[in-house]
Amino acid sequence: MTALPQTTAKKLGLVIDLDTCVGCQACVTACKGWNDQGAGLSDQQPYGADPSGTFLNRVHSFEVQPPEGEAQIVNFPRSCLHCEDAPCVTVCPTGASYKRAEDGIVLVNEDACIGCGLCAWACPYGARELDQAAGVMKKCTLCVDRIYNENLPEEDREPACVRGCPTGARHFGDFADPDSKVSKLTAAREGYALMPDLGTKPVNRYLPPRKKDLRHEASVLAPLLDIQASGFAGWLDRVLGKI
C-alpha cells in the first residue's frame, strides 16, 4: 500500500534521550536478537575478514565542539523514525512498503518486496538495510510483533530496544496522545525531529543533551579565616567551635 494514510489513529514512535544515552550498543544487539529469530537478519562472513550484516538500529557517536568550552561526545542511536510523510513508502513500486493506518508504523511486507532498494535511497536517515541473504528490505518494525503480542506479559509489550536499554534512554509511546510519556517528555525537554526540512515529518523525537560544564559559585567555600595569620590552632578553634 504505497499511498500514505491521510492520518493515523495513533502515532507510535520512540523518544531517544541524547542526554542519557551512554552509547553502550545494548539496543543494537537487543534489536538484532529479537528480529533475528525466525525473521532473520543475516550476517555475511560472520567470522571472516570483511564481516557485514543487517541491523535495524545503529548507535553512532559524534564529537561536538560547542562555540565555547570543552569538546563533548554525544552518542546517537539511529533507527527508523516512522515518518508521517514517509518517502520510503511512496517510492515503493510494489506496495511492500507501507504505513499502518492504525498506528503509523512503517513496515515492509517482505512477501511483496522485490529488493529494488529504492526505499532505502529515499530514506534520509539510513533506516533501511537490504538483507543480503533474503534479498528483501529490512527495517525497524517498532517491534510490531511485541507491542501487541498477547503471548507476552503486558509489561513486555514494548520494543526490544526499549526494554533492554540499561539507562532508560529510549521511550516508546503514542505521540498522538498529548498525555503520553513520549509527548510529555518531548514537550518538557524540547524534543526535536531530524532533518525536518526534508518534509518527512518524523514521528520519533530526540531529546537534546543538557547544558554541560557549568561552573558552580565558589562562595560556599569562603575560608573560615586567614589560616596564614591565625595558624592551625586558630582554624581548629573556629572549626570545632561550630559544633
Binding site: P51, V59, F62, E63, V64, Q72
Partner: peptide, 17 residues
Amino acid sequence: LQGEISVFERGHTAGNY
C-alpha cells in the same frame, strides 16, 4: 546537535548496506 560536529565513532567498524 549544535556546534561543530565530527564523527567520533561511526557505530560499527564492519561494513554494511
